[in-house]
Design a protein around this nucleic acid. Structure first.
Lengths: 141, 141
DNA sequence: TAAATTTGCTTGCTTTTTGCAAGTAAACAA
DNA sequence: TTGTTTACTTGCAAAAAGCAAGCAAATTTA
């Protein structure tokens, strides 16, 4: 597997060394803000990621501890991907992209953005708690 | 100039359509958190961006209203790049990358990160005000 | 129980982007 | 007037992305 090379000691560039592309954060978005958790489900997202790119990004994300994969309990040919705490810690980054995008994209402002703008700290905490409890639910099975 | 194509109506993907690469946010970082404002200064950053990529990204950022460029008052062969309000609105995104990167990069935690963690809202406001006042100073010259 | 389907990929090929080194052109300084 | 600074551009090789097709294990259907 291709290793991530860090270009400097700047924490922003460190982050971008993992996340600086058009697809990685969209996979994490799906894991954070939708119920999607499998390869097939990620493929159904509007942006239409290519199958090889998706496979590659999932591999990189897992190798670097952003997500974990487990065989589905019902179907052994199905993998369930889940966020780790390291991945969950990116919620604020993605939330800020959402807020910025909503401001400059004419499309529509989602309820979650309105909530974030109203009370960012609590809303982020709430999302974080929801995702963390998901991890704990998995751990106990 | 190559037009940005939006892959979906999601605000996160909308943002990534502009910013989803390894270099764009680093240029904005330099404009936000350092005194760098010229082509030559951006080239001196640790990450060593290639000259053609820098030229391309500056063009894209300007075309899409994130930055403006002006001839330097002292030297007519020098251009000063400045953030627009649209660019300044990305401060929270970059701040969150900085916070996340500082948590997962073993290197060192910068003072600005400590300040952000202590009082995020006020610190972001402060940075924003500093950058906005820079715009206004330019506008009045 | 054999055939078709679902699921999660891999492979091969073309196009696009990146990265590197060298070159250019206007302004400026000596 | 000659060399230097500044901001790029150009050409080419390497890497990454994108697209269509193929594959293999597990599961469902006939």
């Amino acid at each position: 597997m291709k290793e991530i090379i860090h270009r400097s000691d700047c924490p922003i560039s460190f982050s971008l060394d993992y996340l600086g592309d058009k697809w990685t954060l969209l996979i994490l978005r799906d894991l954070m803000f939708t119920e999607k958790s499998t390869y097939g489900e990620f493929l159904t997202s509007q942006e239409k990621i290519a199958t090889n790119i998706l496979a590659d990004r999932l591999r990189v994300l897992e190798t670097n501890g952003f997500i974990t994969s487990n065989v589905s309990p019902e179907k052994k040919n199905k993998f369930i991907y889940s966020l780790t705490e390291k991945g969950i810690d990116l919620v604020p980054v993605i939330a800020e992209f959402m807020i910025w995008g909503s401001k400059y994209d004419s499309y529509e402002v989602k309820d979650i953005v309105k909530k974030l703008e109203k009370d960012k700290e609590d809303t982020l905490k709430e999302i974080r708690q929801r995702l963390l409890s998901r991890i704990r639910a998995n751990a106990s099975t």
